[in-house]
Amino acid sequence: MVEQQFATVDDYIDSFPDEVQLVLSQLRQTIQQAAPGAGESISYHMPTYATGDRPLIFFAGWKTHVALYAVPAFDGELEAELAPYRAAKDTLKFSLRQPVPFPLVARVVGELVETRGSA
């Protein structure tokens, strides 16, 4: 199977069905608000946000879920809240059958901005 190449995040989001586009657009907006000034691009075939030349976070849409990548383990309460969404060591997976916890996503991105440097 050949992976589709996307020139922009808009192209990426537009490649999904309408209901998934809505969730991906909300995810994009949440990340942009939590990391103002972060650069937006496509890397590894998915939307990527970076501060300076350092990747901050990636997101992707799938048939039954959306996911955030390069999310390290956090200490304490935040990690406990993320536990139900951990799909792998550095992946958070949110089912499309449940509301995506956008405030939690914003907290994660905010923590990443703090630990990896502001935009």
Rank of each mutant, 00 (worst) to 15 (best):
2 V>Y: 12
5 Q>S: 08
6 F>Q: 08
7 A>G: 09
8 T>Q: 08
9 V>I: 12
9 V>E: 12
10 D>A: 08
11 D>C: 08
12 Y>P: 10
20 V>D: 15
21 Q>A: 13
21 Q>V: 10
22 L>Y: 15
26 Q>G: 10
27 L>Q: 09
30 T>V: 11
31 I>D: 08
35 A>Y: 00
37 G>C: 15
38 A>C: 12
38 A>K: 15
42 I>Q: 07
42 I>L: 02
46 M>I: 14
47 P>Q: 09
48 T>S: 14
48 T>N: 13
48 T>W: 06
51 T>W: 00
55 P>K: 08
56 L>F: 01
57 I>Q: 01
59 F>Q: 01
61 G>I: 05
62 W>R: 02
62 W>E: 07
63 K>F: 03
64 T>V: 05
65 H>I: 01
66 V>N: 02
66 V>G: 02
67 A>C: 03
68 L>E: 05
68 L>A: 04
70 A>E: 00
71 V>S: 00
72 P>R: 11
73 A>Y: 06
75 D>M: 01
76 G>E: 00
77 E>A: 11
77 E>V: 10
78 L>C: 06
78 L>W: 04
83 A>S: 11
83 A>M: 13
84 P>H: 06
86 R>D: 00
87 A>I: 05
87 A>H: 06
89 K>G: 05
95 S>F: 08
95 S>G: 10
95 S>Y: 03
96 L>I: 09
96 L>N: 07
96 L>A: 15
97 R>V: 09
98 Q>A: 08
99 P>I: 11
99 P>S: 11
101 P>C: 10
103 P>G: 04
103 P>D: 03
104 L>P: 00
107 R>E: 15
108 V>R: 04
108 V>H: 00
108 V>S: 04
109 V>P: 14
110 G>D: 14
113 V>C: 03
114 E>M: 07
115 T>W: 01
116 R>M: 04
117 G>S: 04
118 S>K: 13
118 S>V: 14
